[in-house]
Write a protein that binds this DNA or RNA. Structure first.
Length: 468
RNA sequence: GGCGCGAUGGCCGAGUGGCUAGGCAGAGGUCUGCAAAACCUCGUACAGCGGUUCAAUUCCGCUUCGCGCCUCCA
């Protein structure tokens, strides 16, 4: 199947063609581990997960790298304030990050390189930039990238240097560089860095932020690779600088396709600590929402569109997922132990719609519409008794295949609770009452079971009972 | 100032120059002893004003409102 992506570089939807036939090489900007990640961060990671899964769905092997930024202003400041060595300060946040993405059913990448483990690679890269006349040292011993010496600076952000002007943030920059656009490759040690310092041929210091992504992506994926992703806010300056550093050093194209996801709003407002809507994953889970429900809300919008994350949407997700679970259960019962046969006509149509949707720049909302079309047709066929066991098995298999992309169908389903003996006895009594057509007693027992938190349903096959 | 994005029915959220997106909520119905589930039907949604067009929510312009980036924020 064909995949089309909106490439930020060209600002167009393009047919995706891997650079190499063996695998798609993917670099996804990861977390800065100075704190727990928030729900907006997870939107990006879930988007990247969907990308990875769609690539695999289309038959590609994927080699994904996600960096862990464990040295920068924020991690250093946090470690200082906590009175801990940098690595001890960041370790719990790295562990929390992996816990969190597991809760969201985000597939693991092949590599999670940490910046602090790749200082030598970064130093080598700076050396290459010096050789090509793209780096210079300032008086304080910091090394900067010379933007003026790199033609075409600004890609993929479409930034024209002449359009940059000194804003408030630039004025605050305390570093000694020649031009506004120049950015640090290596920062000379100062007292605020404490013991966070490495030796380099240009003196003691630490790497600039952008450098890690260039060094680590090239180490694990090669000097040119297929796809690079991140939040839209990373487009400039981060991705422009990465591109300049990498292409400046190698003379080769760095990334073929850039994908950027939009931000998240919460209840229509931008997320901020002062508004009190700055949620981490553990905040939401603490409020009783599951990772599965949160994932559903995050994938139910197109990645390039600002997503309004609301508690109403979470509640809707809960109901929707229950309906999907119900359908899966019905299919499983109908299929029994039969092998999958041919797909019914309506399922073939849904499959085509689903494949087109995910291939069309990861249009998951459209793919979900195909899913619900299948659910409706499938339920109708089940009601009518027109879906043979082999057909039910085939539809169930199709759902399982779709779930390799969505990751919400089988993941995190509530475990069926063990039925207490009390409920079991009431159910048996109710079955007897029903057999005797004692409806009043039957209804009374149903209410009694409901009080215990269980819901009874009468079906042609007898009573069904589950946690309400 | 530069670059860019958005405004869709109660809520979330796709998309399209004319043909039902979808989900949740709500109303009516079928089925059922009743209920639940499921299915069927139902909403004069496309910010405002102009323009192009046989036809615009969809294209163009303007306006209003909101958002992002412009040196270390997904």
């Amino acid at each position: 199947m064909n995949l089309y992506f909106y490439n930020t570089m060209s600002r167009q939807r393009e047919l995706f063609e891997p650079l190499s036939t063996d695998a798609v090489r993917l670099y996804t900007c990861g977390p800065t581990v100075y704190n727990y990640a928030h729900i907006g961060n997870f939107r990006a990671y879930v988007f990247e997960d969907i990308l990875r899964r769609v690539l695999q769905y289309a038959g590609h092997k994927v080699i994904q790298v996600m960096n862990l930024t464990d040295v920068d202003d924020k991690t250093i400041r946090g470690a200082q304030e906590a009175g801990l060595p940098l690595c001890e300060y960041t370790r719990p946040y790295i562990e929390a990050f992996f816990d969190d993405i597991r809760q969201l059913n985000v597939e693991k990448a092949e590599h999670y390189p940490a910046a602090t483990d790749h200082i030598p690679e970064m130093i080598t890269l700076i050396g290459r930039l010096f050789e090509r006349g793209l780096a210079y040292a300032s008086d304080d011993g910091s090394i900067y990238f010379n933007v003026a010496a790199f033609p075409g600076y600004g890609r993929p952000a479409h930034i024209d240097l002449s359009g940059l002007r000194a804003g408030a943030r630039v004025a605050q920059d305390e570093y000694d560089k020649e031009r506004i656009g120049d950015f640090a490759l290596w920062k000379a040690w100062d007292a605020d860095d404490g013991d966070v310092v490495w030796d380099s041929p240009w003196g003691r210091g630490r790497p600039g932020w952008h450098l890690e992504c260039s060094a680590m992506s090239m180490k694990y994926l090669g000097e040119s690779f297929d796809i690079h992703t991140g939040g839209i806010d990373n487009l400039f300056p981060h991705h422009a600088n990465e591109t300049a550093q990498s292409e400046g050093a190698t003379g080769k194209p760095f990334v073929k396709t850039w994908l950027h996801c939009a931000h998240l709003r919460i209840n229509g407002e931008k997320m901020s600590k002062s508004l009190g809507n700055f949620y981490t994953l553990r905040d939401l889970i603490g409020k009783g929402w599951s990772g599965r429900e949160i994932r559903y809300v995050l994938i139910n919008g197109h990645y390039r569109q600002t997503l309004n994350f609301t508690f109403d949407a979470l509640a809707a997700a809960r109901t929707t997922l229950a309906r999907l679970d119900e359908f899966s259960d019905r299919l499983a019962v109908a299929a029994g132990s039969n092998a999958a046969g041919g797909l019914p006509e309506w399922a073939v149509k849904a499959r085509t719609a689903f494949d087109e949707a995910v291939g069309d720049d990861l249009n998951i909302p459209e793919a979900l519409a195909a899913l619900f079309g299948l659910v409706r047709e499938g339920n109708a066929a089940l009601d009518a008794g027109s879906l043979p066991p082999a057909g039910a098995a085939a539809v169930a298999a199709l759902l399982a295949r779709w779930d390799t992309v969505l990751g919400v169908l089988s993941f995190g389903r509530p475990d069926p609770d063990a039925m207490p003996a009390e409920v079991r006895e009431l159910l048996e009594a109710r079955a007897a009452a029903r057999k005797a057509r004692e409806w009043g007693e039957s209804d009374r027992l149903r209410d009694a079971i409901a009080v215990l938190g269980w819901e009874v349903r009468d079906t042609p096959g007898g009573q069904q009972c589950k946690r309400a």
